[in-house]
Design a binder for these strands. Structure first.
Lengths: 182, 182
DNA sequence: TACCAAAGTGACACTTGTGTTACTTTCAAT
DNA sequence: ATTGAAAGTAACACAAGTGTCACTTTGGTA
């Protein structure tokens, strides 16, 4: 081989994540990233042609990890159990949703990202169908609306500082049974 | 006076809106805006010190307009009527929510924006309280969660191209009564 | 231990955005 | 018609990001 690398891919991705979340797509630069890793900017070009390629690679990696976690939904039996697993997963990895939003600003890569997103939704069709078959989910609602609705719930701003577990439980309740009394 | 202006404030704000929605905060530049208005970049500095001041001014203007619309909620009597008015308003002016998100990236103006946002939520407290008093809304849910939940619903992505009215009606139903059958 | 390929550096030329300023243009009031 | 104040322009100096390349450093291998 040759000399040892000053930074691992893990460190690179971790710094990329922080900078993307803090500065957004346009605010993310190789200068910031190099500083954050304690290397020179030029070194980054040894591994990625430009920031778009890096971001694409990184977010694909994150989504792969996420998809792996998601597939553990099959370890749970019955819709109710799967639903609670999914909700906990979404709230545990809320950063991923933000990163996906940010990565959608990368030019000329919309197609790939849409594909992945569709894949994720595709994978969860079985989950929704199970809910409908078990007579738990309202069968006249479009599957993609149901999934979009569930995933969007992570983005509700908790300005009042309500404790996490109470917050999640309230949201679960509203998703299942609505804001209105019976 | 002096010579006639080449562009009205309305035109300026309209172009600002389009560019903000298309390019986001970091991607919005005076160069783009000047081109879009057919004037020189320097002219813009006659009216605003920099893009942050312009964006702040513009978004305040939009939020004022929005708040005026919002206050028409009092023309409707009973919670049910007010709820449907609010939902229709939110879905008619969905751009505003996006603009508010974008404007939150303006540095050193977080305080003001948070203030306005809180004002809006403050104004709608009466609406939520009415729903609770009428026994329609679940009284144990925090008011801010209810409002955040309602406003967030605009952001659910309609990738499948479901017709607008059907989309809105489905979301209303879920918000009120949840995804689950009774 | 000498080599060499990978890792890393830093400077260069380029592009784009910023804020300022001296200048020109326009038009309404005198 | 003159004029002056507001509107607009264009060029300047500056800052920050980009991509490249010749160069140096490093460490395992022959």
């Amino acid at each position: 081989m040759a000399r040892e690398r000053k930074f691992s891919t893990d460190e690179l991705f971790h710094a990329t994540k922080q900078l993307l979340l803090d500065h957004g797509y346009e605010g993310f630069t190789f200068s910031l990233l190099a500083d954050s890793l304690g290397i020179s900017r030029g070194a980054l070009y040894k591994y990625y042609e430009n920031k778009d390629e890096l971001i694409t690679n990184y977010v694909f990696y994150e989504m792969d990890q996420y998809l792996l976690k998601l597939k553990q939904i099959d370890l749970h039996h019955g819709f109710e159990a799967q639903f609670h697993f999914l909700m906990n997963l979404i709230f545990s990895y809320s950063d991923i949703q933000k990163l996906i939003k940010i990565s959608q600003q990368v030019p000329n890569h919309q197609e790939k990202f849409e594909t992945i997103h569709e894949d994720m939704y595709q994978y969860l069709q079985a989950f929704v169908e199970l809910g409908k078959q078990e007579g738990i989910l309202k069968s006249h609602l479009p599957n993609n609306l149901i999934l979009g609705y569930i995933f969007q719930s992570i983005a509700i701003p908790n300005h009042s500082g309500i404790p996490h577990s109470q917050w999640v439980n309230s949201i679960k309740e509203i998703i299942c049974h609505g804001l209105f009394r019976k």
